[in-house]
Structures are given as structure tokens and as C-alpha cells.
Design a protein around this nucleic acid. Structure first.
Lengths: 335, 335
DNA sequence: ATCTGCTGTCGAAACGTTTCGAATACGAAC
DNA sequence: GTTCGTATTCGAAACGTTTCGACAGCAGAT
């Protein structure tokens, strides 16, 4: 492969001059610029990213660490971030953790080896211990997305998850439901706990006692949610409504009710948190609390790029985005 | 950041010895190995990928170029490939082309700058002209996924798309449909043309003439498919069945029939090509031809890794995977 | 005693850039 | 004609590795 040396030879100038042309980092005469460009085309020169990165100390690589890229929710985030980074001249490296902190470590290690310039991460856990481990493992500008960890030196972009849980629950309580089940994600994760907190808060606001037996713990995935839903809905005193704490879990519940031949919304109301793109053609089309994930992603990467290119320092501030309710067919008032 | 030099100093050995320990590239005494490992831990050494890659000439980076990572179909591919690469010690860099060959060029350029060790690509076009452009732009081991381009020196992993189209159409013809519409993707793309070819072939096999007016060209996206479907289904002589040539297009059609309040399968049968993970809870759950995308992805990356690590040379062979039909609720026999 | 072969370790070059101080050219000013 | 300043251009060092030939030490063969 042609190197900058070949270009220099071809153009009859010094290597450093070619570099100056390439990076517009020093004044070069029009005449020479033209010669260099011709030589570049002639030898088919493509800069060597690794060499550049080694010498200059910055890598043009942005890491994105999400729970699972196969989840449409996170895929949408990835697409958005990839786009913005491409325009800014950065490459995106996406990794899925599978909500496994071992794998998260492994992934962060690789990202460090590649000396990514910064990263957007949805951590696998949100306790303080994990937080300090993260700080050790990150070592570059980072923005936390959709999940916070106590007191880290990173900016956080998140949904108001308490409000999300509250909105879902309030809707059901508002239309007369009194026994509302909820299938939660992984306990201890901020996103999960906050949403559950909103569920409790809404009950308190309406003066309705919560039944602990109606809260079932899954993880964030579809089959678990399905299994928990089956379990809960087969009880003879099953709830009249059910909340899923994340998108794929909503899907899991829909599979479950279909299996049990439960009529929705006649016999059961369902509300999901996080939208599904194809929600409108699901049967039944679920009422959900939608979170503005794309604009959050955009904010996150813009903030990150500012930290990288303008050496802007992370304030640790939280940028909180408000969710809203979209009513579809899966909920109905009961008397 | 600590470098290999710091490790060497810490362990009291030469740099090259540390390197030998790191890469097991030369025999080193147990005693020294231990000293080196201690020093690595002590100074918190993380290898510098760019330096390594510059010197050794290989990058540990695999590029994945797909039409759109936000499409669950491709997201699943990405996840699978990421997994396998991680195990093999490679990082994956995913890019979406948006089926735009300009963007494809830009992306390939960036991947060349990063000197990716190889790539898995679903090209934006499949004509010969584009093919030779691709060869220019790739310059590393590559495997073509799910789409072939005439006579390129790359192995191809693909679905038997003719069979996929045939299967979908044969099913409908077999249950009595005679006027079958089809919403196609981008004409000229092998995947599209082959599936359409299967549609024609099935008609021929059944001795049923095709009505050209029932073939509508979309691109591969959902809204386009939706619009074409609306158009087609509002004709007074609309077909009794409709085929969508790809997954998101199936979704688009479902949205359309819902909008037009057409009863499926009573008044219209629908078959999609490519499955949707949540297909079973759609309304109606679509009958589809499923393509074994995950095993294809696995094959592709394994083949690629073999080419990279074992310098195995691409034969240009096609690895063709067979699709199969899954009947759900969206199709019904007519008499 | 000397030579041979093997093991383990070392030193220095090389990979392709960027960066920065130094060198050159050329008018303008004296 | 010398000096100075400005505008370009150049050369060499440096980034952190891997790689490879050289070398030291030592055991066994001569």
C-alpha cells in the first residue's frame, strides 16, 4: 500500500509538506497543494489510521456500549450515533454487554486497547461499587446513557424514569384499575428501580395500596417476561392490569396473553414502557409510555464530541428527558 | 499512560522480552514471565492497539457494512458477528449504508483508513459496474452477505432467494389464489430480482399468467411499502393476495391493510419474505418465508476469519442457504 | 579444552505518521 | 550590497509496538 512517502516522492516534496497538505496544518502554496493532490490520486494513497493515531495521540474512534444491539431500541440509538459520528469524522464501535458485567469489562478492555477517544455507555449495573470500577475501566471522556450510576464524573442523559413508571400506573389507576401487576427488570438497576418507584408513587397519589405479590422480577428480556406473565396471569386472583417495564418485556407479555387466550383489553389491560416501532400493528396494539430515545442519543454524542474536541470538562450534570403516554388498544376502563 | 517500556523497566527486563511474554512469541522462562506479569499489573499497562497494528501490519478490526443497523434483521446479524469476533479477539465496526452507494463509498473509505483486517458486507447494488468499484474500494479479505455481485473474487453467503420467492408464491397459488400482488424492493438488486424471479417461476409452474400491473416497485423500506400497498389495494380490481419482498415491507403492508380496514386473511392473504421476531404477536400474524440469517452470519464471519488468520484464499464460491415457509394467520385458501 | 547447539534474553531497526525547529528563497528596506 | 522579515519548505525526532539477528550461558559431544 502506498504511504505518505510515496506521495512525497511522487510530488517531489518533503513528507512533512504532504502532511501539511493533508491536515491543512501549515500554509502551503497553491502550486504544491495541487502537485500533492495529484500524487495522492496517482498512487492511490489512503492515510494509515493507526500511524496517525499513534503519533498524534487521538484515535477517531468512539465506543458505544449497550445492553444488546439486537434490541431495536438500542439499534436505533446505534444508528443515530453512527450517523452523527460519521459526519464528525469519527468511527463508531458498538458493543453489546448482554447486561453482563464480566462481558462489560472485557469490552471496555478492548476499547481501551483501541484507545477510543470517548464512549457512550449504558452500564450493566448502577451501584456505587460498579461505578468506581467503571471509572477505572473507562479512562476517557464518557457519557452515560439512560442509566445513571451514583456520583460518577460523567454527564448523564436519561429519561425521567420515575415519571415513566408513574405515567403508566397513573393511566391505569385513572381508568379504574386497582390491582395492577408489574413485571420488572433487573432489581438494582436505576432504570428499573426508578420506574418501579413511579409505580409506587402513583399508587400513593391515588391512595391505592400496592400488593407486593403483584410485583414480579424478570430481567429485561422477553422470554423471562413471558414466563413471569404466565405465572402471574394463571393465578385465580390475577390483576386486572399489567405493566411491562421495558419494550421487549411488553412483547413477552403479549405472547403470554395470546398463549393463555386472555382477552385484551376486555379481561386485562396492559401498559408498556418504551415504545415499539411496530406497536401499532401488534395485536393488541399496546398502550405505552414512550421515551425520546433518539434525541437522547443525539444529545449524548454531541456532548461527548464536545468533550473530546473542545476539551470541555464533564460536569456530572444530568440531562433528563420527559416521557409521555401513548394510548392504544391495550387498556380499557373498568368499573 | 503506561507503555511497554514502563513494564520493562518495572520488571527489569528488555522491551522485547515483555513483548515476547505478551504475545507468547518466543520462549521465556517462568521466572521472567511472572516478573513481567507483576509489572504489568503494577503499572496498569494496556497495550496500544495502534502501535501494535502499525508495526505488525494487522489491525484486529473487522468491518460490517449493512443497509441499516436499525432494521432488526441486520441488528441480529451484527450481534452474532460481534459475538464471534469478540471471542476471536477482533473488534467489529458496524456501518449502515442506507442503501446509498455514495455513503457506502464513504464508509469503505473510513474502513480502509482504519486498515480493517477484513469485512462482511451487504452491498448497496449488485451490478457488475458497482462490483468492480467495490473491488477497488475494499482491498482486504471480504465476504459478501445475502447479496451477490457478478463475478467478484469474494465468497458469497446467501439465501436461495429464487426459492424464497417461489415458496411464498407457490403457497398462495397452492391455496387457490390467482391474482397475487407483489411489492418489490429496489430493482437491480440481486436479492430483490431473485425473489421476484421466484414469484414468476412459481406462476409458470402453476401455469398461471402473471399480471404485470400487480408488481409494484418500492424500495426496501417500510413507508414506501405502505404507500405502494395502499395504492394497489385501493384499486377496484385488487389482488386477492399480496407478497412483501422483505421484512420491514411486510410491516408496511400490515399498516396499510389496517388503515384500509381490509380483513386479513378473509379479504386478502399476505406473505412476507424474511421473518419478524415478533411476528407471532402481530395482527394478523404474517405467514412468512424465513431465511436462516443467523447461521448465515455465522458462516460468513467464520469464513472471513479463516481467510484472515489462515490466509485462506477466497474461492468466490457461493454458500447458498435454503429458506422455508412458516404459515401463520395471514393466508387463507380461496375457492 | 574446544566446538556445537540450544535456550533465553537483549538491542536496534522499522512501521507511517505528526510536529516542530531549522533552513531556504525572495523581496523590501536600509 | 547587506540585512531583515515573511512565506514556504524541509529534516529529523518521536509515538509504542513487533521482529529479527546477535549474543550470553550452559550442557553435551568431541
Amino acid at each position: 500500500m502506498a504511504t505518505i512517502k510515496d506521495v512525497a516522492r511522487g510530488a517531489g516534496v518533503a513528507i512533512s509538506t504532504v502532511s501539511a497538505v493533508l491536515n491543512r496544518s501549515a500554509p502551503v502554496s497553491e502550486q504544491v497543494i495541487e502537485k500533492v493532490n495529484k500524487a495522492i490520486a496517482a498512487v492511490g494513497y489512503v492515510p494509515h489510521g493507526a500511524a496517525r493515531s499513534l503519533r498524534s495521540g487521538n484515535s477517531q474512534l468512539i465506543g458505544l456500549v449497550v445492553p444488546n444491539i439486537a434490541n431495536p431500541h438500542f439499534a436505533a440509538v446505534a444508528r443515530e450515533i453512527e450517523n452523527i459520528c460519521l459526519i464528525a469524522g469519527y468511527m463508531t464501535v458498538v458493543y453489546s454487554t448482554g447486561q453482563d458485567s464480566e462481558r462489560e469489562s472485557q469490552v471496555l478492555k478492548m476499547l481501551r486497547v483501541q484507545r477510543v477517544a470517548g464512549l457512550v455507555i449504558i452500564p450493566t449495573r448502577s451501584d456505587a461499587e460498579h461505578g468506581s470500577r467503571l471509572v477505572d475501566q473507562i479512562q476517557v471522556p464518557a457519557v452515560l446513557l439512560d442509566m445513571f450510576v451514583e456520583g460518577l464524573p460523567y454527564n448523564v442523559i436519561k429519561t425521567d424514569n420515575i415519571e415513566a413508571g408513574r405515567l403508566a400506573t397513573d393511566h391505569l389507576l385513572g381508568i379504574g384499575h386497582r390491582r395492577i401487576g408489574i413485571i420488572t427488570g433487573i432489581a438494582g438497576l436505576a432504570t428499573n428501580d426508578d420506574r418501579l418507584g413511579g409505580y409506587l408513587q402513583a399508587h400513593a397519589e391515588h391512595g391505592v395500596p400496592v400488593e407486593p405479590g403483584l410485583q414480579l422480577a424478570g430481567n429485561f428480556d422477553q422470554t423471562q417476561a413471558h414466563d413471569r406473565a404466565i405465572e402471574l396471569l394463571q393465578r385465580r386472583d390475577r390483576p386486572t392490569a399489567l405493566i411491562a417495564i421495558s419494550n421487549l418485556m411488553t412483547l413477552g407479555i403479549l405472547f403470554a396473553v395470546r398463549e393463555l387466550k386472555i382477552k385484551v383489553p376486555a379481561d386485562l389491560s396492559i401498559v408498556g414502557i418504551d415504545d415499539l416501532e411496530f406497536a401499532a400493528v401488534l395485536d393488541p396494539a399496546p398502550t405505552v409510555v414512550v421515551t425520546p430515545i433518539l434525541s437522547m442519543a443525539r444529545r449524548a454524542v454531541e456532548m461527548l464530541l464536545r468533550q473530546i474536541t473542545q476539551k470541555e470538562v464533564a460536569t456530572g450534570a444530568w440531562d433528563i428527558h420527559q416521557p409521555h403516554l401513548v394510548v392504544r388498544e391495550s387498556t380499557r376502563a373498568i368499573g
